[in-house]
């Protein structure tokens, strides 16, 4: 286990807190692995200076800039919009850009790749299965009259119609729900909470005419019925989406409780 300390702290991170006199340091433990080369997981420790507003992603990027350029991490927007930086932070799936070091209340922060995803390297995981399951449920409005022409009217929705699916359209496909799902841990063919919640999002949309088609897709031995309603998917969602509820509501459609 290597402990690395920066000889000269980067100005870039520190400048964020120039007005503050308080500066602290944490130990950031990063899981390092490279399955393609048969490399087992090891943990590298780094001392990182932080301010109270420093996010876990900023701490990781500090390590990349100053201590070890080879740390593999996927990130993009830094504002919980792109869903790229999902990882396990002290054992809990979360977005690194949306988790402040100060809110963890620990001087040692361990970051690991998300569970239930194949690891590419270090903190970067393969999203192939998530995107394939997402595509499988046809995540778009199916309606032959969807083309708006000068003669056609727009699709009118009442606030109540919108309320049925609005929260589920906030999904950023970060994969944290799939990572927290206990069924996904054993059933690799399971569609997963992300795909099922998106299936519900379109089934509940009154502009959509593809309900039967979608219900058939999720109605298989590794589909909607394999959810045990543990609720961990909803617990970890950074956007406040409740996939566990979506799955139960979708089951309502399948059992004929909802039309």
């Amino acid at each position: 286990m290597a402990v690395v300390t920066a000889q000269k702290p980067s100005e870039e991170l520190i400048t964020i807190g120039k007005t503050s006199t308080q500066s602290d340091a944490i130990t950031l433990r990063i899981a390092r692995s490279n399955p393609a080369e048969g490399q087992e997981t090891t943990y590298a420790e780094f001392k990182v200076p932080v301010k109270k507003w420093t996010t876990v992603l900023e701490a990781i990027l500090y390590v990349k800039q100053n201590l070890d350029h080879a740390v593999a991490v996927r990130y993009s927007c830094r504002q919980a919009s792109c869903g790229s930086c999902g990882m396990k932070i002290n054992g809990k799936p979360a977005l690194a850009c949306y988790t402040k070091v100060s809110e963890i209340k620990s001087n040692v922060i361990t970051v690991e790749p998300m569970n239930n995803f194949p690891i590419i390297r270090d903190l970067a995981v393969d999203f192939k299965q998530l995107t394939s399951n997402h595509k499988k449920i046809k995540p778009f409005i199916i309606n032959e009259e969807s083309e708006v022409t000068p003669e056609s009217k727009e699709f009118i929705q009442t606030p109540k119609d919108l309320e049925k699916f609005l929260q589920f359209s906030y999904c950023i496909k970060c994969g944290l729900c799939n990572s927290a799902c206990p069924t996904m841990a054993t059933d690799t063919s399971f569609i997963g909470p992300q795909g099922l919640a998106q299936a519900y999002r379109y089934v509940a949309d009154n502009r959509d005419k593809g309900k039967e088609e979608r219900l058939k897709i999720v109605d298989n031995s590794h589909g909607i019925w394999r959810c045990h309603f543990a609720g961990s998917c909803s617990h970890v969602c950074p956007k406040g989406v409740d996939p566990a509820m979506a799955i139960q509501l979708l089951r309502g459609y399948m059992l004929g409780f909802q039309k």
């Binding site: 069924t183 054993t186 059933d187 399971f190 031995s221 019925w225 394999r226």
Partner: peptide
Amino acid sequence: RVILLELKQGSTYE
């Protein structure tokens, strides 16, 4: 059956 299907996957096994 459900428990065993969750435990392992594969066409022949299923």
